[in-house]
Design a protein around this nucleic acid. Structure first.
Lengths: 149, 149
DNA sequence: TATTGTTATACTCTATAACTATA
DNA sequence: TATAGTTATAGAGTATAACAATA
């Protein structure tokens, strides 16, 4: 019932055997740093992703953006509101279907994307500084091979 | 303002260049599957980790468990309440310091840990089925080299 | 003064469900 | 009937801050 030593080393050997545990730890590290990098740009992790998808797929609808981001359409509404309020994207109308919007970046949105892309690249270069370019590619490739059952 | 084609392929080339994006996707896949695996055992991702740490570090205090789990002490209270209510761990008293607890697994907790460990191993084997044992080791090793600045 | 555990509160992120307007 | 977008609500997972007991 006692013998707790202030300097006893806490081990996590059992957990370390799991890829998921290591992945969670790495992801939380990335997420925290990324948040501080994006914050001064007025972006969050998800709005950064949304801006990237809209930049790359002009005139995409909210529903398809939801699929691309793997979130529900209801979540996209808030996200798009946020980007639109910041004048980074516009809700264009589609001729022939008045239900959906055609999302596209504004000029300011394009500039913001370029800036954010550079900032995020610098963030990754910092966190992955111990990995060679080849190792980073390997890491990306291995992560992409994690598959749902 | 239109030309949205129902079959237009949505690309995420810009995001894929980032390790963090791929990591998030992989982690969410793991987290979702893990949750369904742990649910019938009455565990969550974090309580599974806590059980592992307590199993491996008998008589650990709540504060040190918080450090091991990278969460706040206030969060540990709820977590430990949860595991204690399920009779998986006990809050033992420390002789010489009445402030802290000495957390340890119960017999039921040990059994639950063995069962959960097997279940989580099966979950990983399923999600990482496309990776060889060597590739899984490589993935773990690379993830561990992601470092805070 | 510092540490341990606790409580209350709040915040972020996301999902669910019910709704409207259009198709 | 089905689809696109919206709103309100709720839940999970954490963090922050203030506090009591003990060191």
């Amino acid at each position: 019932m006692s013998k707790i030593d202030k300097d006893t080393v806490i081990t996590d050997q059992k957990l370390r055997q799991f890829v998921g545990y290591t992945m969670k730890r790495a992801f939380l590290t990335v997420r925290e740093d990324l948040a501080t990098v994006l914050e001064p740009l007025g972006l969050r992790m998800t709005s950064f992703s949304a801006l990237a998808i809209i930049h790359e797929n002009p005139d995409i609808s909210q529903s398809r953006l939801a699929e691309a981001l793997y979130i529900e359409r209801s979540g996209v509404v808030v996200l798009v509101d946020e980007l639109e309020s910041a004048d980074l994207i516009e809700r264009g109308r589609v001729e022939g279907d008045r239900r959906q919007y055609a999302l596209r970046t504004t000029e300011a949105g394009e500039a913001k994307w370029q800036e954010a892309e550079r900032a995020v690249q610098a963030h990754e270069d910092a966190l992955l500084r111990d990995l060679t370019p080849e190792e980073r590619s390997t890491l990306r490739a291995l992560l992409r091979r994690v598959r749902r059952r």
